[in-house]
């Protein structure tokens, strides 16, 4: 690990200022579960690490006009235990699937949303796109955990965030601060993620010197939600595929729906076609299955990951049934 300065700001303004020194060759440290690994492998080499854990305004969860404001520093445990987030079941499902008290106690929402891909080519130094000598290592190599959707371009990794699909399905907005001292913007979370076409690009719209400070969720109202993660192991693991849904029911009939897949594409994958198909229908084994089919209809699996199409299809189906308490049995 290369050496770096260590900064510990107390306020958002101070954090932004510290991030913008050194030509923004800086990085944000919160729970450390991702950054430490990036630093250890020299995948990032900042001149300064800005530890934001003391920034009080970015902690905790509080009510705000017509919704809930979650601080970027809120931990998974905070989300699971706060009564304000109790109605957002799809978020609680994600915490439940993260089977490690160490991650639940220390991992933050902001850190999850900014988590870099777990693609093994990226983690071993071949860049986000996994290219070597102008050739895609992913395309020709072991791509069993890679994208099955949105993978026509050079980016074939899958988005790592576990919470983003659930939050996008809820219509969340992310508050981004910096790089100017007072700059702030609220961005729909679905527009926060990008699919890079060049190795110099990142996975989000964040510019150097910017960071996430909060996440806004609209009031849960009568909406119901669920996340279904397909996990290979019983312990701490990344999902092979996941689906998060938010639905508004009118009796037995779906009035409005949002369906977002995770870990299947370089970004969280919003399936508007599948959601449209759900509206006006009851949710049962058959309809949920058809909606699942539609969600993966455009999938283009790589050489080793066709199995993920079925996993994603099933995740959508089971998330829908779970949201209306019709999911029976275990796995």
């Amino acid at each position: 690990m290369r050496s770096f300065e260590y900064a510990r700001p107390q306020t958002e303004a101070e954090a932004v200022a510290l991030l913008n020194d050194h030509d923004s060759e800086t990085t944000v440290l919160a729970g450390g579960t991702d950054l430490m690994n990036l630093l250890r492998r020299d995948l990032v080499g900042p001149k300064r690490v800005v530890d934001i854990k003391q920034v009080e305004s970015m902690r905790g969860i509080r009510p705000i006009d017509d919704g809930v404001l979650i601080g970027a520093l809120a931990t998974l445990e905070d989300v699971a235990s706060n009564p304000l987030t109790a109605d957002y079941r799809s978020l609680l499902d994600v915490v439940d699937g993260t089977r490690a008290i160490q991650i639940q106690a220390n991992g933050t929402i902001g850190g999850d949303l900014c988590h870099l891909p777990n693609c093994w080519y990226f983690r071993n130094g071949y860049g986000l796109l996994g290219y070597d000598n102008g050739e895609s290592l992913v395309q020709a190599g072991d791509n069993r955990y890679h994208a099955i959707l949105g993978n026509a371009g050079p980016a074939k990794f899958v988005s790592a965030s576990r919470f983003a699909p659930a939050m996008i399905a809820w219509g969340a907005r992310v508050r981004v601060i910096g790089p100017e001292p007072d700059a702030e913007e609220y961005l729909p979370l679905e527009y926060f993620y990008i699919t890079p076409r060049l190795s110099s690009q990142g996975v989000t719209v964040l510019k150097p010197g910017q960071m996430i400070s909060h996440l806004w969720l609209p009031s849960a109202g009568r909406k119901r939600s669920a996340t279904y993660e397909v996990l290979q192991m019983e312990g701490l693991d990344w999902p092979l595929a996941s689906a998060s849904v938010s639905v508004e029911m009118d009796g037995d009939i779906v009035r409005d729906a949002s369906i977002v897949l995770g870990h299947v594409a370089p970004t969280p994958w919003l399936s508007r076609e599948a959601a449209k198909q759900a509206v006006g229908r009851p949710l049962n084994e058959r309809s949920a299955s058809e909606i699942g089919d539609l969600a993966v209809a455009t999938a283009t699996p790589l050489s080793n990951n066709a199995y993920k199409v079925q996993l994603a299809r099933t995740a959508v189906k089971r998330a829908l049934l779970k949201a209306v308490d019709k999911l029976e049995g275990g796995l």
Binding site: Y6, L29, T33, M36, V49, Q102, N106
Partner: peptide, 13 residues
Amino acid sequence: GKATYACARFAVE
């Protein structure tokens, strides 16, 4: 009191 991976923290933190 919280279980934490010691490899995920810098000592200065």
